[in-house]
């Protein structure tokens, strides 16, 4: 049933060129603002799509969201204001870059922790005393034995 409905919707999207929303912006921004808006688009998830930002998606929801961002920007809101507004409306799901907070600390800090711990371990595994790095030449006896082995081997 749902599948049928979805299929119908898809077909409609395809068949209906003069649908309400268009890929084109209805709100026009100044060039500087447009650059800001485009950067912000890439940080917001198209909520119905699979892992696409609203800047990349052609879905109607993405178009609507782009329009909302533009309108808010025109109204003088900062990027943070707009993000907060959208989070209040759609939840944190909309942010492709999660906020840094207690519930995401593990996510953000793991790479740094790993680098630190790994770095310390690696540093300790190396030897900084020049002597220990140098290995002495073979003793005379060993050298003879080696030559014997090699002679046998290379025959």
């Amino acid at each position: 049933m749902l599948r049928r409905f979805v299929a119908t919707c898809l077909l409609f999207v395809w068949l209906m060129p003069a649908a309400s929303t268009s890929a084109l912006a209805q709100t026009t921004l100044s060039p500087e603002m447009e650059v800001r808006a485009k950067a912000l688009f890439l940080q917001l998830r198209c909520v119905v799509c699979q892992n696409q930002s609203i800047g990349d998606s052609d879905a109607d929801v993405a178009k609507d969201l782009r329009e909302i961002v533009r309108e808010q920007m025109l109204a003088g809101k900062t990027d943070d204001d707009i993000r907060n507004f959208l989070v209040a409306r759609y939840g944190e799901f909309i942010l492709l870059k999660p906020v840094f907070a207690w519930h995401t600390a593990v996510l953000w800090l793991t790479p740094i922790l790993l680098l630190l711990v790994g770095g310390v371990l690696a540093w300790r595994a190396t030897s900084r005393s020049p002597k220990s790095v140098k290995s002495d030449a073979l003793s005379k006896q060993d050298e003879n034995e080696l030559q014997e082995i090699l002679r046998q081997h290379r025959d």
Binding site: R45, E92, L96
Partner: peptide, 18 residues
């Protein structure tokens, strides 16, 4: 039971820095 997204901006930043 809450959803968050971890998308390209996160990976670009952290992976790039590392």
């Amino acid at each position: 039971d809450a959803k968050i997204s971890v998308g390209a901006p996160f990976f670009n930043l952290t992976f790039g820095l590392v």
